[in-house]
């Protein structure tokens, strides 16, 4: 159990975010649940690249050659954080527009958008 703890936590956070999206009554609530869903990928990537006793891969004060954790997954996480911010900005703009046009913030009331 403890040997794979972060993997289970990642699945739990993912399902929590999905649960939030399913039960949401407010579009901003949906967006926040989506950001929580996305944080599960951080936990997963962090668990893949981590090594016990490894140093952070920044060689400003240590010599190259010491054992470090994986810098590649950290670069991926960095990209992930940025993408999360941009996605949330765009989704929130859509929510605001839907609220202006439809006068409602409930995902169930968006039926007027039906083709």
């Amino acid at each position: 159990m403890l040997a794979h703890y972060p993997y289970y936590i990642a699945a739990w956070i993912f399902l929590c975010g999905l649960y939030g999206i399913v039960r949401s009554r407010h579009l901003v609530h949906t967006v926040i649940s989506l950001t929580i869903l996305q944080t599960s990928t951080y936990v997963l990537l962090l668990a893949i690249g981590f090594r016990k006793g490894g140093y952070a891969p920044i060689f400003a004060d240590i010599h190259p050659g010491v054992v470090t954790v994986d810098p590649i997954v950290q670069a991926l996480m960095l990209t992930d954080v940025v993408v999360e911010a941009t996605v949330v900005a765009l989704l929130l703009a859509m929510v605001v527009k839907a609220h202006e046009k439809g006068g409602t913030t409930s995902p169930d009331d968006l039926r007027y958008m039906r083709g």
Binding site: Y42, L78, V81, E84
Partner: peptide, 16 residues
Amino acid sequence: FFVFQAPDVALSQITV
């Protein structure tokens, strides 16, 4: 992130 040796991501997580 900081505890698990990823200070770079920690900084972007602080800001974002």
